[in-house]
Amino acid sequence: MEAGRDRRAVDADSRRWVERLLTADHPQHERAAAELHGLLLRVAHHELSRRRGRLRWIGGPEFDDLAHQAADDALVNVLARVDEFRGLSRFTTWAYKFVVFEVSSKVARHAWRRQAPGPADLAWDRLPDALAPRPGDRLEQRERLEALSAAIGELTERQREVFVAIALNDVSIDVLALQLRSNRNAIYKNLFDARRSLRARMAAAGHPVVNEDEIA
């Protein structure tokens, strides 16, 4: 974890949430848990709507069911970890994090079950049309893209699969993690290493890539 800052003074509302949720024998525990569940459900609905693009095939009842599952699972997690709340945010923001993660994971699982990435999504063939050299491109740009193509061919097999799927074919990182029986963090590491390797190879070929916000 990044070091960040020291614990802030916990605000009164957050303290109240924690007191009521920390132990089941608090007189207002059940009521507070029910209230929090209602909030988590609203966040789940909102978050699912925001990610609707990856769930186009899901109808109303299934959509609601998914929201309920996410809220239920998030509430279980929050109640199990209330004692870990460090007061770095409002309690509700901390609790919403759990439901956002649940929605994220459930959307990926649904998308993977519905349409898992196939061999064509992971296999390296050529640059997609949006990137491929065009007749009107300047020579320098054509050479850059040819250097990129050559560098992709030199990645390790795993780095190439991950880079091609995520960066070139727009496969979701979480869907790819499910397909490769891995997790987001490990897949991201593969992607990061692939990008570093490609940049190094392109620089060695005389085509360095520098992001504007990295120059300072």
Binding site: D13, R16, W17, R20, Q28, R31, A32, E35, L36, L39, R42, V43, H46, E47, R50, R51, S89, R90, T92, T93, Y96, K97, V99, V100, F101, V103, S104, I166, S172, I173, D174, R184, Y188, F192, R195, D213
Partner: peptide, 27 residues
């Protein structure tokens, strides 16, 4: 967050949720 599409999506969702459903007190 500028490089990871998964974490970026989670961040955007949490930011929106915290903004939209903020300051809710337990009754």
């Amino acid at each position: 967050l500028r490089s990871c599409p998964g974490c970026q999506a989670d961040h955007d969702g949490l930011l929106e949720a915290a903004r939209r459903f903020a300051d809710v007190k337990p009754r």
